[in-house]
């Protein structure tokens, strides 16, 4: 029998020398796994990776400059569930090493200067609250101001419940900024990684000029559990995976991690920001 742990992460598994692939059950030597970009060499299972590791993979060496690193959540609702929201944030900070669920900054990808935003699933399930909304909006506004393309890599369970309707409104806030990029002729590339769901998929993640996804990434509006509970229907296997979404026409390509950077670079080279109209009618 194959061992299935769909949401297990490399970091959560016994952190000794070996990691078992959740897909093919192969025992993988950690060093070898990292060298292979956290992709199982046997079955090509793409392990989840953190935002920092992702930036290492995508940005040209030494070009990433982080912005807005010190923005933190204000706990506007004083939310307490099984533990207070503030404690939850503190725990997530320790677990992921990030201040919230997205890291943003400027970088070059294949020599093209871009604004880069990378989400981190390790931070409260990559959930989108005020900080994620603010940081991605600022990245989009910077992209507009300096006419550089925007690249966003999503990994998120959706809006962050602990910030209530304020979290929901971040969808509108980010899309307001992203939609201005479209009007100004500045390219926006969206990369969907495992998992991209809920309010993140139902806003900026779906609307890139180019939308790419990693193989077998879980991509869906409502999680399978929600659908099961709400509708009482069991979902077919392979439902809401990257390949399924590709087949139904909502993403451009499924791109293996090893080719992701080069593919993004291709689109960045082809889609150049429209030059500013200086009003000379040229």
């Amino acid at each position: 029998m194959r061992l299935r742990m769909p949401f297990a992460r490399r970091r959560e598994l016994p952190s000794h020398l070996w990691t078992q692939c959740p897909d093919c059950a192969e025992m993988l030597f950690n060093k070898q796994l990292v060298r292979n970009m956290n992709v199982c060499p046997k079955c090509e299972h793409h392990f989840k990776i953190g935002a920092r590791e992702r930036i290492e993979l995508l940005a040209d060496k030494g070009t990433f400059e982080e912005r807005d690193a010190d923005l933190t959540s204000g706990d506007p609702l004083s939310f307490v569930d099984s533990k207070p929201y503030r404690e939850r944030i503190e725990a997530a900070r320790i677990k992921s090493g990030a201040t919230d669920a997205v890291i943003t900054g400027t970088a070059a990808v294949g020599g093209v200067p871009v604004e880069l935003a990378v989400m981190d699933f390790d931070f409260i399930g990559g959930s989108m609250g005020s900080v994620v909304g603010e940081k991605i909006t600022r990245a989009a506004e910077r992209a507009l101001a300096r006419r550089a393309p925007l690249v966003v890599v999503s990994a998120s369970g959706g809006a962050r419940m602990q910030e209530g309707t304020l979290a929901l409104m971040q969808m509108a806030k980010i899309l307001s900024a992203v939609s201005r990029l479209g009007d100004a002729g500045i390219p926006y590339i969206s990369v969907l990684t495992d998992p991209t769901t809920g309010g993140v998929l139902a806003s900026f993640a779906s609307l890139g000029d180019v939308v790419l996804a990693e193989p077998k990434a879980y991509i869906g509006f409502s999680g399978a559990r929600v659908t099961d509970q709400t509708i009482g229907e069991r979902l077919p296997a392979g439902f809401q995976r990257a390949e399924f979404v590709l087949e139904h026409g909502f993403i451009d390509q499924v791109v293996p991690r090893a080719q992701l950077k080069e593919r993004i670079a291709f689109f960045l080279a082809a889609l150049r920001p429209k030059p500013v109209d200086l009003g000379w009618g040229l």
Partner: peptide, 26 residues
């Protein structure tokens, strides 16, 4: 809420909502 069923997923519930929000912003 938006309907969370399989046919809605197949026809791009997330994209439809995203587009609707985006169109309203501008």
């Amino acid at each position: 809420g938006a309907f969370p069923g399989p046919e809605a997923e197949e026809r791009g519930q997330a994209e439809a909502i995203a587009k609707s929000i985006e169109v309203m912003t501008g």
